[in-house]
């Protein structure tokens, strides 16, 4: 096992930002870490990069326990973290790429040859003499990947590698990530907000929310109001959705997440009768393939994202723009 995390806790100013019971990460694979802002993704990456120490718990790297008080050089030289907006030292692109080799005592001639090869690999060799801190976002990200590879790492951790990068550069960066995993066998763990990107790149997806691993990402997060009525309580969301709930919570404002895996598309409304509050209608806005599943975006007064298995025949006959019936039951709702 590459990493094993047991009861890992990290707090800032008394607030737990990471609280992971158990997590295993295998060697040679691509892991996508997905979750909202402040979920603890960057903190987890920094702990895995040995530049941040957990407050509690156990971290094993290659089945060897890492002392929480030890951010030893030996570990750091096997793992490299690419920050969300990589910092380029205010020297040339070439010297930036040579830096990891220089601190490892590799001689100048070998450094130059390796840097030239890496720059060619990321398609940046024409920029070798340019000042690195003057590059654009996409160019910086490419140089940062080349610099990370100059460390000859066993693991590369990427914090939102394509945020603030245009589509052309994004595709290029994704190709580079796949190549370094396949050709060099480097294990990769990356964070992203882009579900599609994670689905495209990752062998495994880790959902993280409020510092904890969850079964799925919290999507469809809305502010709602719990109201009582003759037929029991229900949540009103943006005056558009009215979903019946059986909760002990009192009336008033709340925040909920509607699980996209638990929202169902019902062919022609199924056995529901008109006016049934669990049956919603909306317009199908988008269909996207994500591996074995299809993600559908439905405008039901509010944008609702739902995930349906490809083999489910309810999805195969749908066309974008059509009116669809969706079932949104109490089980799909999680109070945040």
């Amino acid at each position: 096992m590459l990493y094993t995390l047991k009861k890992l806790v990290k707090s800032y100013e008394g607030r737990k930002v990471l609280d992971l019971p158990d997590l295993d990460i295998e060697k040679g694979r691509i892991y996508g870490l997905i979750g909202p802002n402040g979920a603890g993704k960057t903190t987890l990456l920094e702990i895995l990069a040995f530049i941040l120490r957990p407050d509690d718990g156990e971290l094993y790297y290659k089945d060897i326990k890492v002392n929480n008080r030890d951010s030893s050089l030996a570990y750091r030289r096997e793992v490299v973290l690419l920050q969300q907006y990589p910092v380029m030292f205010s020297i040339s692109v070439q010297k930036n790429i040579e830096f990891p080799m220089k601190v490892r005592g590799i001689d100048r001639h070998k450094r130059k040859i390796a840097a030239d090869e890496l720059l060619a690999m990321v398609g940046m060799n024409q920029f070798s003499g340019a000042l690195a801190h003057t590059l654009s976002g996409g160019e910086t990200q490419r140089v940062a990947i080349a610099r990370a590879l100059a460390c000859s790492p066993e693991v590369i951790l990427l914090d939102e590698p394509t945020s603030g990068v245009d589509i052309e550069n994004r595709a290029g960066i994704e190709t580079i990530i796949r190549r370094i995993n396949r050709e060099r066998g480097i294990s990769i763990i990356f964070t992203s907000h882009d579900m599609l990107q994670v689905a495209r790149l990752a062998d495994e997806i880790i959902y993280i929310n409020n510092g904890r691993i969850s079964d799925s990402i919290h999507e469809n997060i809305f502010k709602g109001v719990i109201k009582g009525g003759e037929k029991g309580k229900s949540i009103i969301i943006h005056d558009s959705l009215n979903i019946p709930v059986n909760t002990v919570r009192g009336e008033g404002e709340c925040r909920v997440s509607i699980n996209p895996l638990k929202i169902k598309i019902i062919k022609n409304g199924g056995s529901y009768s008109a006016g049934d509050r669990q049956l919603l209608t909306g317009r199908l806005m988008q269909l996207t393939s994500e591996g074995d599943t299809v993600r559908a975006l439905v405008d039901a007064g509010v944008p609702l994202s739902l995930i349906v298995e490809k083999r489910n025949d309810s999805i195969s006959v749908l066309m974008v723009g059509e009116t669809v019936y969706i079932e949104c039951t109490e089980e799909s709702i999680e109070f945040l």
Binding site: L73, Q83, V87, F99, P100, V103
Partner: peptide, 16 residues
């Protein structure tokens, strides 16, 4: 902060 983390993750020791 950011330069320290970058240098650290690229394998630099404290002096470097």
């Amino acid at each position: 902060e950011r330069y320290r983390k970058t240098a650290f993750t690229l394998g630099a020791n404290m002096l470097q």
